[in-house]
Amino acid sequence: MPRIGSRPDLRQMIKRALDTPLFFYNAINGVATTATIDADGIYNYVSQISGLGTWTHVVGSANGTLFFYNANIGEAATATLDPGGNYRYVGSISGFGRWTHITGTSSGSVLFYNAYTGEGATARIDPAGNYHFVSSISGFGSWTHIAQTD
């Protein structure tokens, strides 16, 4: 019978659960790469994804969710990355307004902002990657950058 703590596969599973997935995207050719950085700062390549189309914004949110937006045509999509950096497309979303800034949060919310009009909106992306509109916001003023902090 193995001793407790002597199973390297269990330690590797715990360490892998602490990995941070990363998503790299090239808007010129529609190619992406996924990777992870573990708790020790070690970078690990996972996979390449092609045919993602053209997106002007790509933001991450909670639980490995990704939000893609094309400001030129007002379309969006969502996807997820698991802790191992494996990509899963969820679905497309049409009918978006014009947003100059999009910021994801660690709570799963997404903030949309238009610097020209001062208008904004919020939405949530659930852990499965499904998009849910929450509300419109007016009177933001004029901002050049928006950042989320965790």
Rank of each mutant, 00 (worst) to 15 (best):
F24M: 03
F96E: 07
T80D: 02
A17G: 08
L52M: 14
G85W: 06
V59P: 01
G74A: 08
Y89P: 01
W55D: 06
G74H: 10
T34F: 03
T34A: 04
I73M: 09
Y69S: 08
N26G: 03
Y43H: 15
G139E: 10
N44M: 01
T149P: 00
Y131I: 02
Q148C: 07
E75L: 05
D19Q: 14
N44S: 12
G5R: 11
F133H: 13
D150F: 12
S136K: 13
N86I: 11
G129A: 13
N70Y: 04
N114D: 15
G64R: 05
V110C: 02
G30T: 03
G41I: 04
Y89W: 15
V110H: 00
G60F: 09
L18C: 04
L81A: 03
Y25Q: 07
L66T: 02
S136T: 12
I28G: 00
T54E: 08
S6A: 14
Y25V: 04
P8S: 10
I49E: 03
N72K: 13
T34N: 01
N26W: 04
G5A: 12
W143H: 09
P8K: 11
N44Q: 13
W143Q: 04
Y87V: 13
D150W: 12
A76V: 14
L22A: 01
A147E: 15
G85A: 07
L22S: 01
G129R: 04
P2A: 09
G141K: 08
Y25F: 15
R16N: 13
A121L: 08
S142R: 14
S135Q: 12
A39H: 15
R3E: 13
A76C: 12
I73D: 15
A79L: 13
D9P: 00
M1I: 08
G95C: 05
I42W: 02
G60S: 14
H145I: 03
D82E: 07
G129E: 07
